[in-house]
């Protein structure tokens, strides 16, 4: 009997094979916005180090429509990153108490709670309200 195994070529079609792969891609694309925001932070530190006038012009650039659009989009992706990251945390760091593993929801829930408290603290300390 002759053997002639056939290997089908792997194409980019897998991304569309199931919604989970699109969700995965959305999660991974959050890096563009979080990384972009990191660069914005570097830029802001540069302007801050250059004195009050430079900082004022940085704030003006922040108010441009492009910056507002970036912020809205980036915030959406950053929230998605946070939600997915904490949802997956119990898989990476399971906690066994007295033999039984803590339910995933407890570990995720604790992370979500800390996240909410921390965000609120940052916003209050920064005088956002």
């Amino acid at each position: 009997m002759s053997r002639k195994p056939y290997l089908r070529e792997e194409t980019m079609r897998w991304v569309f094979r199931h919604p989970r792969y699109l969700r995965y891609m959305a999660r991974e694309f959050s890096c563009l916005f979080i990384g972009g925001y990191g660069l914005l932070m570097v830029w802001g530190l540069k302007r801050l180090s250059e004195g009050p006038a430079a900082w004022r012009s940085f704030l003006e650039v922040l108010q441009s429509p492009a910056s507002i659009a970036f912020h809205v989009l980036a915030l959406g992706f950053a929230l998605y990153h946070s939600v997915t990251w904490f949802k997956l945390t119990p898989k990476a760091l399971p906690v066994q108490v007295g033999g039984e593993f803590l339910p995933d929801g407890i570990i995720s829930g604790a992370h979500y709670a800390v996240w909410a408290a921390l965000s609120l603290a940052v916003l209050i300390l920064a005088g956002a309200f």
């Binding site: 979080i34 950053a78 990153h81 965000s119 940052v122 956002a128």
Partner: peptide, 18 residues
């Protein structure tokens, strides 16, 4: 970034909105 970035973005977004 999961813990911190959204809050930081809200801060600069507020600045962006005036």
């Amino acid at each position: 970034t999961a813990f911190l970035t959204p809050a930081l973005m809200v801060l600069t977004l507020l600045a962006a909105l005036g």
